[in-house]
């Protein structure tokens, strides 16, 4: 089987598992799966910034939070969720472009530094500006949407909404990556000098990748607010941004399936490792370090290595 066919099979398998998985689960399990779908969307976005455009963003949680607050405030004020969702994506796209532009004038790791500062700032604003965000009290009673009169209020129905969003966003990313845009992104990551000499504007394309990646986090956040029905600033700290970064790199940056696996590890693994009590985060951190030493291209890289070895053996 060639690599392309293998990739399609992997995506189809993930989708089948994702559709069937919640059927035997209790509410909490379904909630975790919904969280996985939303984290995977944000991770897909970061994957575009990191895996394809080669820039580190440490503000993915901030955009996730901005999206969540826009959706929470708009829907509690009576706006339709279906309007709030694209609005959150658009807002994050614009904010991403605004903070990305100056940072990308300077190459290297400066986007990482600016986004790191931005994430902490956003958290402080969310916590301190009580008139807007409710401060530490947060926003409560966020309504879940309905579609054509069909309520998506139940856990299972809402999960399928999250999954549908994930499929849509993945299709969009798949399209972007395979379009001339995506090829330009990859060219920039692999050899910026040559890309520039071929007439690709480095700043424009990197900025675009970062802004689209941020918008994905905003959309995921917009669905996160009705999922949890109550938000306060605590989830949107730098640690969540670092977790998103872990998802992408551990899953395998620059691959389409990597973020799914990474997001599953970050949301589901802690639950499966519950029996280890307080040790699971330690085990997890240790595993990440070992993975980075052994195979820096992440789990998908590890699978590829195994697959190649398997194919070579008769």
């Amino acid at each position: 089987m060639n690599a392309q066919g293998f990739k399609r099979l992997a995506l189809a398998a993930i989708l089948a598992v994702a559709i069937l998985a919640p059927l035997g689960l209790k509410n909490y399990g379904v909630y975790l799966l919904s969280l996985w779908a939303l984290y995977a969307i944000a991770a897909q976005g970061l994957n575009l910034t990191l895996g394809y455009a080669g820039q580190i963003s440490l503000a993915q949680a901030a955009f996730f939070g901005i999206g969540a607050y826009i959706s929470a405030l708009a829907t509690t004020a009576g706006m339709s969720f279906w309007l709030a969702l694209p609005l959150a994506g658009l807002a994050c796209f614009i904010i991403g472009a605004l903070i990305g532009f100056p940072a990308l004038r300077v190459q290297h790791h400066y986007l990482a530094f600016v986004t790191l500062g931005f994430n902490v700032l956003v958290f402080l604003v969310l916590r301190n500006e009580e008139w807007l965000t409710g401060g530490t009290y947060g926003v409560a009673n966020i309504p879940r949407p309905a579609l054509f009169g069909l309520s998506l209020g139940g856990p299972l129905a809402f999960y399928y909404l999250c999954l549908a969003l994930l499929v849509l966003m993945t299709a969009m990313f798949w399209h972007i990556v395979r379009s001339p845009w995506g090829r330009a992104f990859a060219a920039l990551r692999d050899n910026p000098e040559r890309a520039a000499s071929l007439g690709i504007s480095i700043v424009t394309y990197t900025l675009l990748a970062f802004a689209i990646g941020s918008a994905a986090a905003g959309i995921a956040g917009a669905a996160f607010a009705p999922l949890v029905e109550y938000i306060d600033p605590t989830p949107f700290t730098l640690s969540l941004s670092l977790a998103f970064l872990l998802m992408v790199v551990v899953g395998g940056q620059g691959t389409l399936t990597g973020p799914f696996i990474g997001a599953a590890l970050v949301t589901l693994l802690p639950e499966w490792l519950r029996w280890t009590e307080g040790y699971y985060l330690m085990v997890y951190a240790l595993a990440v370090m070992v993975l980075m030493v052994v195979c820096p291209s992440g789990l998908t890289g590890l699978f590829d290595m195994a697959r190649r070895r398997w194919e070579r053996s008769p």
Partner: peptide, 14 residues
């Protein structure tokens, strides 16, 4: 640079 950044993040958590 990136894998080492990830590894130090994990080390911090550990």
């Amino acid at each position: 640079v990136l894998p080492l950044i990830i590894a130090t993040i994990a080390l911090g958590i550990f």
